[in-house]
Simulated scan of single mutants.
Amino acid sequence: MDGAVTYCGFIAVMGRPNVGKSTLLNSMLNKKVSITSHKPQTTRCQILGVKTVDNRQIVWIDTPGIHITEKKAINRYMNQSARKALIDVNAVVFVVEAMKWTFEDEKVWSLLSKQSVPIIIVVNKIDKIKSKEELLPYLEMLKQKAPQAEIIPISALTHKQLNFLEKSIDEKLPQDHFYFPEDMSSNLSNSFHMAELIRERLMIYLGKEIPYSIAVQIEHCDVKENITHIHALIWVEREAQKHIVIGKDGAMLKQIGTKARLELEKFLDKKVCLKLWVKVKANWTTQSDLLPNLIGYGDDN
Rank of each mutant, 00 (worst) to 15 (best):
I227R: 05
T52Y: 12
N30E: 14
V89S: 08
I151F: 05
N226H: 11
A146Q: 06
K266S: 12
A85V: 11
K172E: 03
S34T: 00
N124Q: 07
Q241E: 02
L276P: 00
G207S: 10
W101Q: 10
W284K: 07
L294H: 12
S37C: 09
L111M: 13
V223Q: 13
I234W: 07
S81A: 15
R16V: 07
I151H: 03
H159K: 15
A215M: 05
V117N: 08
A251I: 14
V13D: 01
S131N: 10
D105V: 05
T158G: 03
I169H: 09
P174T: 02
L24Y: 08
G9I: 03
Y212D: 02
T43N: 03
I151G: 09
N90G: 04
N90A: 02
D170K: 15
Y138K: 13
K114A: 09
F10V: 09
E171G: 14
I151S: 04
V89W: 04
K208P: 07
T63Q: 12
V278D: 03
L290C: 05
I74S: 02
D176V: 05
I11Y: 05
K125N: 05
K208L: 02
E97Q: 09
A82E: 07
L25Y: 00
F10C: 07
E133M: 08
L290H: 05
V93F: 00
M194D: 08
F94L: 03
V122A: 15
L276R: 07
Q148S: 08
P64N: 02
H177T: 12
G207T: 06
K270S: 12
K248R: 09
G296W: 00
L197R: 05
Q80H: 11
I218W: 04
S113A: 10
T52W: 13
K208I: 07
S110M: 04
S186C: 13
T285A: 01
M1I: 15
G296P: 02
Y205E: 09
D127M: 14
K125F: 03
V13R: 04
L136A: 10
I66R: 01
K254G: 08
K100H: 15
Y212H: 08
R261E: 08
R76T: 13
T258P: 10
I119S: 00
K114I: 08
K167S: 13
V278Y: 02
L135I: 03
M194C: 14
L86K: 13
G257E: 09
A232C: 08
I68G: 06
I214T: 12
